[in-house]
Amino acid sequence: MSYYVPTGGLPAQSELTTGRSGRARFTTAYAVIPRGTLSDITASRLPHWDDTRLWVLARPLSGFAETFSQYVVEVAPGGGSDLPEDDDGAEAVLFVVQGTPAVTIEGSGTHQLSPGSYVYLPAGVFWALRNRGHEDAVFHWIRKKYAAVDGVVPPAPFVTHERDVLPQPMPDTDGAWATQRFVDPNDVRHDMQVNIVSFEPGGAIPFPETHVMEHGLYVLEGKAVYLLNTDWVEVEAGDFMWLRAFCPQACYAGGPGRFRYLLYKDVNRHAALDL
């Protein structure tokens, strides 16, 4: 498996302003954050995290996308946190793209992770993460306020790996478009899904999807042309797309290799009426 990993840095003074990040866009319907924008000066820090920096790709914004935040987190050897989350109502998914961090989860023990590892962390469950390896550990951290429902037991934590989750081809695509689903879509305990969507070269979403789910799409591998609202936008590994509800979307994978992205969406709950 291939996973794009940002390295920070800073463009040289001789580079064009429209070079590494010239495809950046922020509209009323979607945003594109090219990989070149993840530089040293856009990195941030968090309380209680040692030897760690992160890039914030998404956060709730009134009038735009409101359900989730997404970070790319880089933890140096020896770094990590024993108090990683300060919101008891936040659930999370971690997806590792580099290194071998270890996560300790209340009631589940300590799990050694590797690139491709996937961790679901329910709201209110204690967890900690440390990088005891010899290289930086890099992972995506997707957070959402869990929408509890009377009579529905919240889901339990789990740790898995993408090699253990079989891709499910979309109907009538001969495997050109497939999704690795880490949670059963019929399991209404979960109010979000974080999946991996893959396209073989030439594979496509052949219609403009228009739906209530918000999306965060981080390109793990390859390149494609993506329809966002009324614009066709070229994207590549390391780019992030952020879509508000009902933004039309479609895709054509340009090759020469596979095109894959990590996809967030909110699911399985009534539409809130008290915004």
Rank of each mutant, 00 (worst) to 15 (best):
R45I: 14
T7C: 05
D174Y: 11
F126T: 13
A43E: 11
G175P: 06
G109E: 04
D274G: 00
H215W: 01
S114C: 05
D136T: 15
I205R: 10
G19F: 12
S2H: 14
L129V: 12
Y71I: 01
R130I: 05
D184K: 02
H140K: 03
P256N: 12
T160D: 01
G78I: 08
A65Y: 02
A237D: 07
Y218W: 14
P256Q: 07
A137S: 12
A253Y: 03
A65I: 02
R244H: 06
V93E: 13
P60W: 01
E135K: 12
Q13R: 06
P60H: 01
V97W: 03
V103M: 04
V96A: 03
A76D: 08
P208L: 03
A128G: 12
Y4A: 09
S69N: 08
L10T: 15
A156W: 10
N186E: 15
P101R: 07
A176M: 12
A237T: 11
P155T: 05
Q98P: 14
P167K: 04
P34E: 00
R269N: 00
G222K: 14
V103Q: 05
L10G: 09
G109A: 12
P169Y: 00
P157C: 12
E234W: 10
M170T: 11
G8Q: 14
V125E: 09
E66M: 00
V56K: 05
S69C: 10
D266W: 00
I41G: 08
P34S: 01
Y120V: 06
M170S: 06
F240K: 08
H140N: 15
H211P: 05
I33E: 07
Q193A: 14
V225S: 05
A253I: 06
A245D: 03
G202Y: 06
E162P: 01
Y264P: 08
R35I: 04
P122Y: 10
D231G: 04
T110A: 11
H134F: 14
G99K: 03
I142N: 10
E66C: 01
I105V: 13
D184F: 07
G151K: 02
T179W: 06
F139L: 15
L10H: 11
H215R: 11
F199M: 08
C251A: 15
D82G: 06
F240S: 14
W141D: 10
D136R: 15
T67R: 02
D87P: 05
P34I: 00
V219P: 05
D239W: 14
V72S: 02
Q168T: 13
G116K: 12
R244N: 09
V93H: 13
